[in-house]
Design a protein around this nucleic acid. Sequence first.
DNA 1: TCCATTAATTTAAACGTTTCAATTAGATTA
DNA 2: TAATCTAATTGAAACGTTTAAATTAATGGA
Lengths: 355, 355
Amino acid sequence: MLYDIRQMDGGVNSKQEVSLREVAKLADVSIATASLALRNKAGSLATKEKVLRAAKQLGYVASSAARTLKSGRSSVIGIYIFSNPDGRNYADESAFFYQFIKSVADTARINNHGVLIEDIPWDVKADENNLLKHIRGGYVDGVILIPQFDYPYYFLDEIERTGIAYCICNPADTTKNLFSISFDNTAAARLAVTELLSRPVKHLAIVHGPVNHVEAKMRAAGAADITADLKDDISISIHYGDFTIESGYEIGNRIFATENHPDAVYAANDYMAVGIMRSAIEHSLRIPTDVRIVGTDDNEVCRAVTPQLTTVRNPIYKMGVLAVESIFTQLSLESEATGKNEKTIKAELIIRGSC
Amino acid sequence: MLYDIRQMDGGVNSKQEVSLREVAKLADVSIATASLALRNKAGSLATKEKVLRAAKQLGYVASSAARTLKSGRSSVIGIYIFSNPDGRNYADESAFFYQFIKSVADTARINNHGVLIEDIPWDVKADENNLLKHIRGGYVDGVILIPQFDYPYYFLDEIERTGIAYCICNPADTTKNLFSISFDNTAAARLAVTELLSRPVKHLAIVHGPVNHVEAKMRAAGAADITADLKDDISISIHYGDFTIESGYEIGNRIFATENHPDAVYAANDYMAVGIMRSAIEHSLRIPTDVRIVGTDDNEVCRAVTPQLTTVRNPIYKMGVLAVESIFTQLSLESEATGKNEKTIKAELIIRGSC
DNA sequence: TCCATTAATTTAAACGTTTCAATTAGATTA
DNA sequence: TAATCTAATTGAAACGTTTAAATTAATGGA
């Protein structure tokens, strides 16, 4: 059922119930004085009190539209999650995104900002999605972008041109000079693989995520950093999943069916790791005795499985906080004065029973 | 690090780059004509084309603030998730919320509406949180409310008074006449318990969620419906968790330590269920041979564990879609003409290996 | 007491749309 | 062709704020 809202003429056109005019009248001051007083910008103490009382009595709330129109600030920050163009939305499953959204919303709210959220498939054309529309239309004061996949940033030039505050979370290209926050995915993978190799390993399986997924790529690079130096008596196999539990399970079924099955598995995310665990258990392999497994992210599934999954924590809540702070820093500075700023979030190994 | 955005004077006050005025000038028509043409409200074909071309050439996007101010419609729908006042945010973990948000955002976008998201702890006073502010300030055209817990609806009178479109997801009190969508939690629990009882059971454990959680309550009632009719040769024990994996695990440790441990467990959500499973496995109990377990929700953790968890599916994506549709129906009708409307979403048993 | 400052207040002009009412152009009929 | 009707276009007034500039009031020093 689709509604064409543009043709909805019947509905309630809710005019502001109580405007600044009424507050001013009740407080017996001019509209300007009322405006100033309410925002604590000027006025004598007595007037401020008088106006505040009047506003409270009438239940006055400033019209966001009028304020935005005049001030040029919407007090809204947009989160734009770019999703997979192939239509498979691994992210649908991800508890992570809610944590991220919540951290952004919490941090924004402290500063009296709202949060707008938008999912944009990568294959939707620039002029058909809402990112640039929102920016040009003044919907948002700042944008937090989560590209996820490694496609060309069609939006970057326009964003830089308009000078809007932005922060890219886990950008694909860190050589560009951007406002960005990145989880140190490379270090995360290095930590995980190093942990696996801290005990004797005969066959190490590396399970990558989607090939064009930015974080998966960097985790792959991190794993490669370590395995490159490995002696010949450790055999290594590389596998590609798509970040889902099911893909992990299928890979598990392939690798555990062989005679010389892996005794150590690094998975680029926790979903695949638990899928692999399920397969291992079904193949009557004991974890961690027969096979040791390390995942990535510290998603809640880590604590669901038996034994619990050792993993590298990706502190997603912190990323949201930092992203919003970056936006506010940009907003509070003269546009000219800002230097680009790239932050990195450290990876932390969380040891549990699977390893 | 906190920023007082109210004192940020240095920042960019981004005026609209290209306004309707410029478009009208380029197309050589009046502003009114341009406005009408762009919204396809009137005008000859030739004029429409001319205006559209001009708009495209200039990269024109209507100012959301100006449009909202004049039209009284913001084209934004707000999601307000009420969270636990005790500070324990079970929801932080929930992959469910992201699915819900995404479904709302997807459905809203089809109708050119944005989605604002806000978390409101139940103990924050009415005039200190953003719900009523957003409504009175015209931020949103409609609100989707997720109360989660059973506290008095301080907002309801005001919402009804302003006549804003709203939809309450899983309201506590279904006797009130509301716009609402509910998952049939009672039926869900009945389905689950009935499934457990379809084979011989000696000791049935029922694990409830937080006592004041709306859905937990109804699931408890559903379970009670079935157990009330049970013969005396089945012993029943009741336990209270808080919807987290850890609370399930602790309950598991208690119930599986006893001699006459349960051979069937119903858990009011999947997180607790997998926690219970972990405990069972650690107590060397085989699932489903020694103990059969059924959860609720069909969260992703169901597919993470071994064996996979049998559960009752809570189609959260559908709930988001229905909520938005309810909002749009209200928006498209004369305010007077609307009859309240309560929809229920059916529960569906998903049989997997744990039962 | 008067003048110079400074603080408080107000007037009025925006901000960029939408829409009513009025005007003009175009089509149709007698 | 004139008269009538309809469609297209436009001028101008809002919507509810913010803010620069102007005005008025209050304060202090000589």
